[in-house]
Simulated assay, not measured.
Amino acid sequence: MTDLTAWQPPPFPSRRVLEGRYCRLEPLDVARHADELWAALVDAPEVWAYLPLTAPDGIDGYRSLLASMVERTDIVPLAVIDAFDGRAKGHLWLMEVRPSHGVAEVGFITYSPRLQRTRTATEAIYLCGAFLFGLGYRRFEWKCNDLNAPSKRAAARFGFVYEGLFRQHMVVKGANRDTAWFSIVDGEWPAVDAAFRAWLAPDNFDAEGRQRRGLAEVRAELTTTTAG
């Protein structure tokens, strides 16, 4: 989008349910989600390794953490509900929301081991992007600690474009953090959207839920077909 003379800033994303085939994103609710989330995360301290805080030391501390998220007005905290069993297995934020520029980020992604590397986890990111671009946002961001190789691989797999490294960007847990920046912009979203939808289609999975084609493979095939 280059001519912005008629462009209007989108609204701040509302806290609403985002419904997919394999997951549902619900506005985070301490009473409804805390116990299930804690049960999914309690034996996985590695989940907190690259987050800007340490793992809570008990359910009460975790409830307080979730409550602090819910109380904030500058983020949209969402619980990730696995449609296969209806249980909350992770949470994430829409954050760094700047409607005046049409920019928002998906971040503070906290996925339990049972959610990681599943189609449910992938669909959650897709639902966030579809929601934001549907509202009229121009740029969808992903940022992570440069040491977090799995997060950087995930960003590339989802279709985010690497933009560069912010050196000495933060001090986190008493250590330097260089931050890797990625984004998808509105002109790229239709192709990314088509790849997500093709990958998430039921016929891309066998009876055991194993993918037939990877997301990057699907995106490359669609790009080649369009170019041809």
Rank of each mutant, 00 (worst) to 15 (best):
A6W: 13
W142V: 02
T73I: 11
M1D: 13
L92T: 04
V76P: 10
E208K: 14
P11I: 06
W142R: 00
F84W: 10
R16C: 09
R119A: 07
R219L: 12
P150A: 03
D193F: 02
T5Q: 14
R114I: 02
P11N: 09
W7Q: 13
R15S: 11
Y111F: 15
D203E: 15
G58W: 14
A44T: 09
A191H: 07
Q116W: 01
S100G: 09
T2G: 06
D146R: 11
V76F: 13
R15Q: 15
A155K: 00
P52G: 08
F160P: 00
F182H: 04
Y126N: 04
L165N: 06
E217Q: 15
F196G: 02
F131S: 10
S14W: 10
G228N: 07
A31H: 11
M170E: 13
R98V: 11
R213H: 15
P202K: 06
E26K: 01
L78N: 08
A55P: 14
A220S: 14
D178S: 03
E26Y: 02
E163T: 03
L135D: 09
Q8R: 12
H169N: 11
V80R: 01
A49P: 00
L222R: 14
R16K: 15
G136C: 08
A201L: 04
D3K: 06
E36P: 02
D60N: 10
K152D: 03
A180V: 04
A88E: 01
D3W: 09
W48D: 06
K143P: 00
L215T: 05
A49E: 15
A220R: 14
T122I: 08
R114Y: 09
T5D: 13
A31P: 00
G214V: 03
G136Q: 11
D74I: 05
V172T: 10
G136Y: 14
L51M: 12
G187K: 01
I59K: 13
A40T: 06
N145K: 03
D35H: 12
A104P: 02
P13T: 07
L28Y: 07
S183L: 01
Y50I: 02
A149H: 13
L37H: 08
D206F: 14
Q168I: 01
G129Q: 09
A195V: 05
D203N: 12
W38S: 08
N145F: 02
A83Y: 03
V218Q: 08
M69F: 15
F84E: 13
